[in-house]
Nucleic acid binder design. Structure first.
Length: 548
RNA sequence: UGGGGUAUCGCCAAGUGGUAAGGCACUGGUUUCUGGUACCAGCAUUCCCAGGUUCGAAUCCUGGUACCCCAGCCA
């Protein structure tokens, strides 16, 4: 597609390119829309053209102002700005109506009194041609009069429609006298009660493109069958420009669903915490999860555009955000499953602090203070009483380095009455700060937090919402059966004190654990809530799996 | 059984008659105060199948096969 446009530009066939992103304001944008946004805005940007935002608002029954606002916020957050004002298909209702009258005068459209059921019957099937409606040959004057009275609201919803007169026997069902206008006595979020009839998608989209001077009307494959109709209208009507429709395959991601119906169901049944729940594949959900605009754009770039059916591995999305945050997220230490460690050769009043870099490779991120005291927390995962081979962490009699600090040795395991491990007694080798110990190698490094200075944090460990990589594989089997019961696990952790004053949406790498983002709703009034965006790669987990 | 599409590595995806890019994943290894990162190496004698044209075919031709979309007064 990029090549096609480049050729057009280089051959002088096209001087500039104008695209548009045309969402219907009836739901939240999701990862699939991000792809479309990236394609439309990105192409325009690349070729020095423009991209419009146009709400395709021809169905007042399903649309809401709230969606209009949310969609604009999502697009801007992704880093794009549309050319000119926000546009609406409803801006063109007057022109569209005039063009409908034009078609009627030309004998190319008629008012049909058939009921919805009759229209379906008359349309025929995939293999049988349709039959003409008995109202197909009304006079121009009668059609004009009826159409005007439809507009004025003289008829009930469903009583009449305006149809194009094309070919009831066309092998392409879209050409069997498609519906141009239907009666809807509904309040419209933009035009109020001015209209009692609303144009269909087919009668609106191409002409809106033409009015705006769109050169490339990019859409998904399911509209390919509509292209002949798109062109038919442009041929019949005195439109000011000639846009061209090009289709590409929509993007799917495994372990997710993106149909608006299913997403809405998840929200309505409180399976998730709203449209922006961090497990939702919506743009606002991904944002709250901690994805960056750049990572989403990179993901789109990595996956590309083609016409083949595709299901992108969610591992690619994970890669996109990890590689962004690896470079751009400051580091911090946070213990998720605390185990107390008493450093027996450190005095109780010892209060040392290390100055450590905010990021191992980004000097511009400065330094942070890491207090070190007699009692610290480590993660339970980092200790094993009977360690298997290749376990480089702490174990009785073994040494490990405290990240950014000293090497310690585990001298004693303190157990409670039930045999559960309550604490560890360890001793510090004070000759190991910033240097390796003499005569031996300590391979393991673990993260830790001063018990005295650490701050409590709520950590929300998110995972895929579904266990099956194709949750909606079965046509109508319930996709909710594939829900992951562990898609959210909330733990109380302890973080280093530098995290005490984070801003909502601040992103960190919790060293050795993963990337986390301060929740933009819950992180208020001093409360600290972090969402796990994605874990770090864990090759120890792989080794363990192999060993067992 | 009508019309419109698509088939290249486990997943994306370049390639448009000159002898199969790249990314993700995976597998080894090096470096490392993150079992992270980085770096190095490996990973399609073959492009849905079968014929054909050609000096030469993923690319052209013929015939198959599989999968996706279309019968809303949704978009």
């Amino acid at each position: 597609m990029r090549n096609q446009i480049r050729d057009e530009i280089e051959s002088g066939q096209a001087k500039t390119i104008v695209t548009r992103f045309p969402p219907e304001p009836n739901g939240f944008l999701h990862i699939g829309h991000a792809k479309s946004i990236w394609v439309n805005f990105g192409l325009a940007e690349q070729f020095g053209g423009r991209c419009h935002l146009r709400f395709d608002d021809t169905n007042p029954a399903k649309e809401e102002q709230a969606y209009i606002d949310a969609i604009q916020e999502d697009i801007r957050w992704l880093g794009y700005e549309w050319s000119g004002a926000v546009r609406f298909a409803s801006d063109y209702f007057d022109q569209l109506y005039a063009w409908a009258q034009h078609l009627v005068r030309e004998g190319k459209a008629y008012v049909d009194d058939l009921s919805p059921e009759e229209i379906r019957e008359y349309r025929g099937t995939l293999t049988e041609p349709g039959r003409p409606s008995p109202y197909r040959d009304r006079s121009v004057d009668e059609n004009l009069d009826l159409l005007e009275r439809m507009r004025l609201g003289e008829f009930d919803e469903g009583a009449k429609v305006l149809r194009a007169r094309i070919d009831m026997a066309a092998p392409n069902i879209n050409l069997r006298d498609p519906i141009l206008y239907r009666i809807r006595h509904a309040h419209h979020h933009q035009t109020g009660d001015a209209w009692k009839i609303y144009p269909s998608y087919d009668f609106t989209h191409g002409q809106s493109d033409a009015i705006e001077g769109i050169t490339h009307s990019l859409c998904t494959l399911e509209f390919e069958d509509h292209r002949p109709l798109y062109e038919w209208f442009l041929d019949q009507l005195p439109v000011p420009s000639r846009p061209r429709q090009t289709e590409f395959a929509r993007m799917n991601v495994n372990y997710t669903v993106t149909s608006k119906r299913k997403l809405k169901l998840l929200v309505d049944q409180n399976v998730v915490d709203g449209w922006d729940d961090p497990r939702m594949p919506t743009i606002s959900g991904l944002r709250r999860r901690g994805y960056t605009p750049a990572s989403l754009r990179k993901f789109c770039d990595m996956t590309g555009v083609s016409r083949a059916a595709n299901v992108v591995d969610i591992a690619m999305l994970h890669f996109a955000i990890r590689s962004d945050l690896e470079d751009n997220a400051p580091r911090a230490m946070c213990v998720l499953d605390p185990l107390k460690v008493v450093l027996t050769n450190v005095p109780a009043d010892h209060d040392e602090a290390f100055e450590v870099p905010g990021h191992p490779a980004r000097e511009d991120m400065g330094m942070r203070r890491l207090p070190f005291t007699r009692e610290i927390w480590i993660d339970r995962d980092d200790f094993m009483e009977e360690p298997p081979k290749k376990f480089f962490r702490l174990a009785p009699g073994k040494e490990v380095r405290l990240r950014n600090g000293y090497v310690i040795r585990c001298d004693e395991v303190i157990k409670g009455g039930g045999g559960e491990i309550e604490a560890l007694h360890c001793s510090v080798d004070f000759d190991t700060l910033g240097k390796n110990p003499e005569g031996r190698k300590v391979k393991g490094v673990i993260h830790w937090v001063s018990a005295e200075h650490g701050v409590p944090v709520e950590v929300r460990l998110y995972d895929n919402l579904f266990l099956d990589e194709a949750p909606d594989r079965d046509k109508d089997a319930d996709f909710l059966e594939h829900l992951n019961p562990e898609s959210l696990i909330v733990v109380e952790g302890i973080a280093e004190p530098a995290l005490a004053k984070v801003e909502p949406e601040a992103r960190y790498q919790f060293e050795r654990v993963g990337y986390f983002c301060a929740d933009r709703h819950a992180c208020r009034d001093g409360k600290l809530v972090f969402n796990r965006t994605v874990g770090l790669k864990d090759s120890w987990a792989k080794i363990q799996k192999k060993q067992s």
